[in-house]
Every structure is written in structure tokens, then in C-alpha cells.
Design a protein around this nucleic acid. Structure first.
Length: 833
DNA sequence: AGCACGCCGACT
DNA sequence: GTCGGCGTGCTC
């Protein structure tokens, strides 16, 4: 409902949603000067508290004057047209309610920081300063600052520190304020800065071809300037087509390395003019974009038809297609359909997949209609994508988790690729949302359809499909003639008995690696653990070094020569002697990617081995570099973590080794089997992309484990059936919904007491058998906070969850209000992954 | 979340 | 005696 801003003489107020963890919007007065610009969804600048300046969003306009407090004025309305639309506001609200957080936290996660104004504290001389008798003494450094302010008018705190040194900066400022010599003010500025390039063109009348002769005569005795003019003519093609002068030329293209002075003379003489234009940070195609042709196979075509047909009655369809079955082409064709119908498309991908080949491929097809939203993008680039959607420049966005927040107003299709990926769930700061589930809600709001794709669907999604809530399309053949890899499990225990083990490598695996290398093929080795060894231990007393802040053993990193904590990132040097008993017999236990890399280099000294994990890909382009090297056959053996399981399609990989299947399978979590099945299937998919079938070797000590069995047969539905009955039996998703509540406190006793207290409150409205815990999680201390966990289980569609969530929040507030728990933090995670 | 106002220890 | 520790409560 739009408030009639013309027909009222009343004072107008706006409820402003602020990007803070506060329960409700705040009411500000709209100054008469801003009345015309008032729109729901527009950004405003307001003062919040004594000095904070924030960007908020107008969520309501009304004329009800608050009676218990004086509403402050909105400082400025930043937008002429809303930056946030009604769909988004509705989605934010839904997320806050569903994920048990504050709407402001959702807003904070949603708005790219380039859309928030920042304010910076600056100092200036106090105009009212009077010291006629000059009796106030100033220190030398203070005088220095005053001198600077007389020249520059205003300085930031950082600038002050630069002048007088880092330590004394703030104390000098304080002292000057005290002496009334300076005052502090807040400078507000938009963070987004458009990209501007400097251009050059000929001034009239020389923009006419006929006047060229005259110009050359004028420059007769100036060879440098003549050269520059000739260069301009040559680069622009001015003589062939004088219209080219209107678009001019990039200044730095004209100048290049040469001296500026001939150019400056030409400008001064009025022959050239310099001007600036605002350009996009993204490349633009000049050609009228015509979608490149993609030819679907018969199977793909019928899959596509089936998807469209099922969209007729269902809001979502799950595309279950084995690795290499050609899902991407189907997506592309569907996207084309929707785009030509005039609707928008969102294509969600996990972070790592976005860095790979797929984006270039889509770019070739969709050209500049396609926007990208990626966490490695700068703020300015993100704002351009955001604005590009509002302006209609982008009707199709490929993006990561957070792209569900973009200002779509007419979605026709959302594609969630690699639907099972757990990285779609945000863990740490609130909102702890799942992009897949949120996208389904977003689609519903737009009356749009959702296509979920995976080779190994999550149990939850597959359950929706087999229960006919969603449509289901299955692709069981690899595209073209590509063969499925052959999976072999090797019993590590048996090999150990038979003394066939080479360190951590079974006889079969070493043989196969040798064979692959000999055939000039490539090998991928997977180990889901980075570092050299998960921990080190003293051979004499068994002591294991632990992190001081977290309840985990420290991982041994050979390359950096340190022990590191994978939870808080702290590190220390490797001890030469046991810190408990002084023995120097310290051994490494278990294996990580570093050790595998090391051992492989010893076993196969002639092969080029590269490691790919968090530690080798931290730098911006290192991931890309490794991929390229691998693609160009500069690497024979690639050793890596999860990272090697995603979207790497290389023809020459014919062997994949899974070093230790057991650690994933036996991980203490109800989703461990699912995760193991998915991960192993995904890595296996890297082997053998063409006619030749690849080989996957799986080293395990639990050769008879059912998950291994299903995996070897690549029997997804068999796996699903076993898994789903376990889930039903033990009351887990998808039959039950989970909410995890973590109680954190720097004191272990208080954490435990607090969790008990919360439990006591919860049991009044939640049946006891639906509350698990409180219990210490496996890792019971992270970053110096002790953890206690309570898990709540609610039978699907039976409980009134919104009401229960409300009561949970009340209970939490009550507990936190007790003084004993003043340092405690309580975190709710809805649908934890 | 951040920032101010407010009450107790080690220093110019 | 003050500077500064962070504890509590509020922000339209």
C-alpha cells in the first residue's frame, strides 16, 4: 500500500530497517525536502544513536507520530527508485522468521557493502576556538596537526596517525578535543564508485575531415604533436570514417609509454579535448547477442521435455543425472526458453564450481545478458550486478549462495546445480540460511519454477521427488560414448597382513599409478584432510599437542613447519621435544594431503605432483593456475581435498585414488553415509571422460560396509533406500526437522549450567523425547568458548514451528537475562547441516 | 552490533 | 589522585 505523499499535510514518518541485529525497524521523520523521494525499498541515511550513521531501507511510510520518543529526521534518501523490491523485503522477513534471526541481520547479509554508505570520523579545527591570551600550551606534535588542518581543513584519524606516528595519534586527538582546538565530525560517502575512463577526441572544427589539412599545417613545426595526431587518426580510423571521432579513444591507449607533453600542448591549443565516461566493470559485447547453438542429444531432449511437462503441475523438479550425463546443456536450453519469454533466471552454483570452466561457457552463450555474482568480486562489481538487475541489463545471473538476495522482480526459473552441496548452507554469521531451501521459497514468491540438479541428490531432495512432491527426471547414461569408471575397493587391513602396503598406498593403487603414468595419463588422489598429519604424538608418553583455544589436536603442517589449529587458525612451531615428558621421539599420526604429496614424490620421483587444498589455493589466482597446469598436462598427479571433487573435467584423468574412505564413512554424524557416498561418487566422476573407462581405487578397512557396496555398484537408489529407512527409524530429516541450539560460554561450568537451564525452559512446551542433550559436541571448545548443544526434533508437518520458534526465542532471552550467563552466547541453527 | 555511561585497579 | 578496564543498557 502506497502512502499518498501529495495529499497530506501531516508529518510523514518512515519505518527504517537497519542492518543490525535488532528486533524491529525504527521510526524516523521524513523531512519535507525528501518527501518526493519517499519509496518503500529506497535506501536512506540516518543517524542511529549519538554518532553512528547508517544506511537503512524504508519498509513503511505512515503519519503516526511516535509518542514515547522523538523521531529523528532522515538525513537523506539515497535512491530515486527503490534498491530493494517488495519480493526481497518479503523474503528477508521470511528468512528472519524461519532461520530465527533478526530481519536486520538478513538485510546486512543481503546488501552488498557497496550499497551501504560508510561514515568516517574526521577532525577539523574548531571555528569557535578562542585563546586570546594564548595561555593554552600545545605540544609540538599537536601544533603539527593544527598546521596540517589549517592547510587541509579536515583529516581522517588514519591521516593523523600517518603524520605523528601510529601510537600517539589517538591520544593527541583526544587532547586537542579537550583543549577545544578541534572538533570531530562524520563524513558520509557512498561506497560505490563508478569506473571512469579518460578519453580523447578532436575538437571542432577539426572533427571535420575537411579541416584536417589546416590542422597539419598548424602543426608543421611540431613533429611530436604531428606524430600523436597521426597516431590518433590511425587508431580511430578517422579518415575513413570521421564519425569515429565521437567515440574518441582511450587516453592511455593514445599516450601509452610516450611523454605527456605533446599531448598536453594539443589540448591547450584546443585541438584535442579530454573527457571522461562512466563504463561498466564488466566487458560488454557489441554484437547483438544471439545465443550460441547447443545441440541436445535425444536423451537430453527428452529430459528437457519431461522437465517442462512436470513444471506444469509441480513447482520444482529434481534432475538426477550421473556425472558426465550432460545436465549443463539441458540447463542452458531451459534458460534460453525462460529468457526469451521475458522472465529472469537465477543459476546457483557452489563457490568452487563457479571458478571453473562453466562461467566462460555460459558467457559465450548468453553474452552480456548474464551477470555474475561471486564472493571474489569487489564491492563495486557486486553493486554493478545488483543495479544491472534493476535496470534490466541482466536478466540472467550465475551466482553463489548469496545471489538469492539479488533484486529480481520477475523470476521465471531458478536452477540449483549440485543441489546436495553443503556449502549452500551458511554457517557462521546469521542468517544461517540454506540457499537451496531459501531459493525454493523465493521461487514460490515469484510463481517461478525451480530445477535442482545433482549426480548425488541430497536425501531430503530425493525424498521430495520420490514422494511426488517434486518432479523427477533421471539421466543414467553418460553423454556421448563416455564410459562409467570402474570402481574397486581394496582392503587395507588385508594388504597390511600380506605386507603389500607401501606406506599408505596399497599394492594395487601403486601399480595403477605406475600404469597411468606409463601411459602418460593423469591421476587424481583424494584425501579429505589437509596438512601433513592430523596430529603428532610422543612415542614415549603418548602426549598429543592440543590447541589452547579449541578442543582439538593440532594438525602437523610440514610445508609451513608449524602445528596449526583448523578451527581457530592459531599456529605454533613444531616441538623438537615432547612438551610433557621431554622425549625427542615424536611421530606423526594419520595422513593429510601434504604427506601424500611427500610420499608420492618419493615413490614416483619422475612424475610431477601437485597438491590442491585450502593451503595451496589461498592466493587469488592459485586455484586457477593449478587447474590450468593440470589441463595443460604440466601435472601428472594431483593430490587434493574436497576441492578435486568439483567440476574438473579432464580427458586424460583415468585413475582416481581415494586414500582413506573410512574417515568419512565413520564420521559421527547422521549424514556421514550420505556425505561419503556423495563425495566418493563425485571424485569417481573425475575418472575417464571418453570412450575409455577410468578406474577408481578406494582404500578402506571396512570393505564390507554397505555404503562401500552401494558405491561400487554405483547404486544411488539402493543407497537411498537404506539411508531413508535409517532416517525414518532414528527420527532424522526428512521425516523430522532439526533445530540445533548451541550454548557458548568461556567457562565450561557455566556453559553446562546454562544449557541445562535452557533445557528446563524448553521442556515446558517441547516433549522431552524431542529434545536431545544438552551434550558437549565432539569438539567442545572453539576459540575459547565451551560449547553445549541441544538438538530439537520436530515431526515434519506435525508441529506448529513458527509458534515453537517464537517460544524458543523467548526461552533463550530469559536465560540470557540471568546475570550468571552474561557472557554466554546462544546460537540457533535451523535445519543444521 | 556499537557506543556511551558507569564503577573499580595500576599508573603519569 | 586519574586513565582505562569492560559491564550493562539503549539506540527511533
Amino acid at each position: 500500500m502506497e502512502f499518498n505523499k501529495e495529499n497530506t499535510k501531516d508529518r510523514l514518518f518512515a519505518d527504517i530497517l537497519l542492518p543490525l541485529p535488532l528486533p524491529r525497524p525504527f521510526t524516523y521523520r521524513i523531512p519535507d525536502t525528501e518527501r518526493e523521494k519517499v519509496n518503500i525499498g529506497s535506501r536512506v541515511i540516518v543517524q542511529f544513536g549519538k554518532k553512528r550513521i547508517l544506511t537503512g531501507i524504508i519498509v513503511k511510510v505512515h503519519s503516526i507520530e511516535p509518542d514515547v520518543y522523538e523521531a529523528k529526521d532522515i538525513i537523506e534518501i539515497l535512491d530515486d527508485a527503490p534498491s530493494v523490491n517488495a519480493f526481497q523485503l518479503k523474503l528477508f522477513e521470511w528468512m528472519a522468521e524461519y532461520y530465527m534471526c533478526h530481519p536486520g541481520e538478513v538485510l546486512n547479509a543481503a546488501l552488498p557493502s557497496g550499497l551501504k554508505v560508510s561514515s568516517e570520523s574526521k577532525i577539523q579545527l574548531n571555528p569557535n576556538f578562542e585563546d586570546l591570551e594564548e595561555k593554552i600550551p600545545f605540544a609540538d606534535k599537536e601544533l603539527l596537526i593544527i598546521e596540517m588542518l589549517e592547510k587541509k581543513e579536515a583529516l581522517t584519524f588514519d591521516e593523523v596517525s600517518l603524520i605523528v606516528g601510529k601510537k600517539s595519534g589517538s591520544s593527541l586527538i583526544k587532547s586537542l578535543i579537550k583543549k577545544n582546538r578541534i572538533i570531530v565530525f562524520e563524513e558520509v560517502k557512498e561506497k560505490f564508485t563508478p569506473k571512469i575512463i579518460k578519453k580523447v577526441r578532436l575538437c571542432p572544427p577539426y572533427d571535420q575531415k575537411g579541416n584536417m589539412q589546416e590542422l597539419f599545417i598548424k602543426l608543421e613545426k611540431k613533429p611530436k604533436q604531428t606524430d600523436l595526431l597521426l597516431k590518433y587518426i590511425k587508431l580511430t580510423g578517422f579518415l575513413e570514417n570521421p564519425d569515429k571521432n565521437t567515440t574518441g579513444i582511450n587516453k592511455n591507449l593514445l599516450i601509452e609509454e610516450s611523454s605527456l607533453s605533446p599531448f598536453t600542448s594539443l589540448v591547450k591549443a584546443g585541438f584535442f579535448e579530454e573527457y571522461e565516461i562512466v563504463v561498466s566493470r564488466f566487458e560488454e559485447d557489441d554484437e547483438e547477442s544471439k545465443y550460441a547453438e547447443v545441440r541436445l542429444s535425444e536423451t537430453q531432449q527428452s529430459a528437457k521435455d519431461s522437465i517442462l511437462e512436470q513444471f506444469g503441475e509441480k513447482e520444482a523438479v529434481l534432475l538426477h543425472g550421473i556425472t558426465g550425463s550432460g545436465k549443463t546443456e539441458i540447463y542452458i536450453e531451459l534458460i534460453k526458453n525462460v529468457l526469451s519469454g521475458g522472465s529472469q533466471v537465477l543459476y546457483l552454483l557452489p563457490e568452487i564450481a563457479l571458478t571453473t570452466q562453466i562461467v566462460q561457457r555460459l558467457r559465450k552463450i548468453f553474452g552480456d545478458k548474464m551477470g555474475i555474482y561471486h564472493s571474489k568480486f569487489s564491492d563495486n562489481e557486486r553493486v554493478e550486478t545488483w543495479r544491472g538487475i534493476i535496470s534490466g541489463r541482466f536478466s540472467f545471473v550465475v551466482g553463489v549462495r548469496s545471489s538469492i538476495f539479488l533484486p529480481f522482480d520477475n523470476l521465471g526459473l531458478i536452477i540449483i546445480d549440485e543441489e546436495h552441496e553443503t556449502s549452500y548452507k551458511q554457517h557462521d554469521p546469521a542468517p544461517r540460511y540454506h540457499a537451496r531451501d531459501t531459493a525454493l521459497m523465493l521461487a514460490r514468491m515469484h510463481h517461478s519454477k525451480t530445477l535442482l540438479g545433482s549426480a548425488t541428490p541430497s536425501v531430503e531432495s530425493y525424498f521430495q521427488a520420490v514422494n511426488k512432491k517434486w518432479g523427477l527426471v533421471e539421466l543414467t547414461q553418460r553423454f556421448g560414448n563416455a564410459k562409467l569408471p570402474q570402481l574397486i575397493a581394496v582392503d587395507v587391513r588385508k594388504e597390511k597382513r600380506d605386507r603389500k602396503l607401501h606406506g599408505d598406498f596399497t599394492g594395487l593403487l601403486t601399480q595403477q599409478i605406475e600404469k597411468s603414468l606409463h601411459e602418460r595419463n593423469q591421476v587424481i588422489l583424494f584425501q579429505n584432510r589437509r596438512g601433513y598429519a592430523p596430529y603428532i604424538s610422543c612415542e614415549d608418553c603418548g602426549h598429543i599437542p592440543k590447541c589452547d583455544n579449541c578442543a582439538v589436536s593440532l594438525t602437523y603442517h610440514l610445508y609451513h613447519k608449524e602445528l596449526r589449529c583448523h578451527y581457530c587458525g592459531s599456529h605454533e612451531s613444531i616441538p623438537t621435544r615432547c612438551e610433557a615428558c621431554g622425549s625427542n621421539k615424536i611421530k606423526t599420526v594419520g595422513l593429510g594431503t601434504e604427506k601424500i604429496e611427500d610420499d608420492i614424490k618419493l615413490l614416483f620421483p619422475d612424475a610431477v605432483t601437485q597438491r590442491m587444498d585450502l593451503d595451496t589455493t589461498r592466493k587469488k589466482n592459485s586455484y586457477q593456475k593449478i587447474i590450468e597446469d593440470f589441463q595443460n598436462n604440466k601435472i601428472d598427479i594431483l593430490v587434493g581435498t574436497q576441492m578435486v571433487t568439483k567440476g574438473l573435467d579432464f580427458d586424460r584423468v583415468n585413475l582416481v585414488g581415494i586414500l582413506d574412505a573410512d574417515s568419512l564413512i565413520h564420521f559421527p554424524d547422521f549424514r556421514a553415509h550420505e556425505k561419503a557416498f556423495q563425495t566418493f561418487t563425485q571424485v569417481s566422476g573425475r575418472a575417464g571422460r571418453r570412450e575409455k573407462a577410468g578406474t577408481v581405487i578406494l582404500q578402506t578397512s571396512s570393505i564390507n560396509h554397505p555404503v562401500i557396496g552401494k558405491l561400487l555398484q554405483q547404486d544411488y537408489s539402493g543407497f537411498f533406500n537404506t539411508e531413508i529407512s535409517e532416517r525414518e527409524k532414528f527420527h532424522y530429516p526428512p521425516f523430522y526437522r532439526l533445530i540445533s541450539i548451541t550454548f557458548k560460554d568461556p567457562d565450561a561450568g557455566i556453559a553446562s549450567k546454562g544449557a541445562d537451564r535452557l533445557f528446563g525452559k524448553l521442556k515446558y512446551f517441547i516433549p522431552k523425547e524431542q529434545i536431545l542433550g544438552p551434550e558437549q559436541p565432539l569438539i567442545n571448545k572453539i576459540r575459547n568458548y565451551y560449547l553445549e548443544e541441544i538438538i530439537l526434533k520436530f515431526e515434519r508437518n506435525k508441529a506448529n514451528l513458527p509458534a515453537i520458534k517464537f517460544k524458543i526465542k523467548e526461552a533463550i532471552e530469559k536465560v540470557l537475562a540471568e546475570t550468571a550467563f552474561k557472557n554466554s552466547i546462544i546460537v540457533c541453527d535451523v535445519d543444521p547441516v
